[in-house]
Nucleic acid binder design. Sequence first.
DNA 1: GTGGACCTTCCCCCACACTGGAAGGTCAAG
DNA 2: CTTGACCTTCCAGTGTGGGGGAAGGTCCAC
Lengths: 129, 129
Amino acid sequence: MRIGELARASGTTTKTLRYYEAVALLPAPERTAGGYRDYDPKTVARLDFIRRSQAAGLTLAQIREVLQVRDAGTAPCHHVHDLLDRRVHELDRQIADLHALRLTVAELRDSATEADPESCNPSTVCRYL
Amino acid sequence: MRIGELARASGTTTKTLRYYEAVALLPAPERTAGGYRDYDPKTVARLDFIRRSQAAGLTLAQIREVLQVRDAGTAPCHHVHDLLDRRVHELDRQIADLHALRLTVAELRDSATEADPESCNPSTVCRYL
DNA sequence: GTGGACCTTCCCCCACACTGGAAGGTCAAG
DNA sequence: CTTGACCTTCCAGTGTGGGGGAAGGTCCAC
């Protein structure tokens, strides 16, 4: 498979594929006599894995970690479990932070709604922030 | 006020103050005979405003927008209200997205917990992602 | 044999909010 | 007169996930 074919099959771009190779998410593929990259069709599955992991909010660095464990021949289940577990806790924290921020911002907005616009003095710092 | 003094008074750094000037969050201050920046002490209040706005999750570009409206002599109340209102809706969407993601990731993690590690075949793409 | 689609490497570019460091100028104290 | 704290400008880099485009090579059909 040439790079454009793989890009179409996996729903990405040739730019991204070369980038993934550069950051070690994809192994360097074989080359044809003319120097073209020649991919194993299995690479599509690897790219699906990467896409799903990204959708789960993992960074490319974390995905690379998982793939390296697997490429070394070890089943990455425990590693993946730990990674996902940490990710769940991270999400819980992010959600709590956003809830707190939402409360603050809504309060600020409501105080701006109630105020008399005439009491807004342009020469001072806005009273609502 | 010289730049270091302002930095200490506002809890930031001289680097950041020069950066804010470069991106038009702060007006260019007067200069002393020796070429040093000489700030109006009111600048502390402006920096507090910037800090509070950042804490509300506004970007520097949005903060600059508000400050430019105010610097033009118009009270920015309505503008600020609209900005905060949009921000609240943005936060609601972000929170909903994270909730959905949290559900997905927790499900993936739990399926990894229940599985028999022996069923993990390193030669295939990990079944948990 | 030539046109066009595809490929190669290379280097620079985006947002975001700064941060680091080099090379040199200013100012007050001792 | 010198030391050291402070200041100046300018250039470049951080991390994330790629995108743009130049200059040139390859391959296949017509």
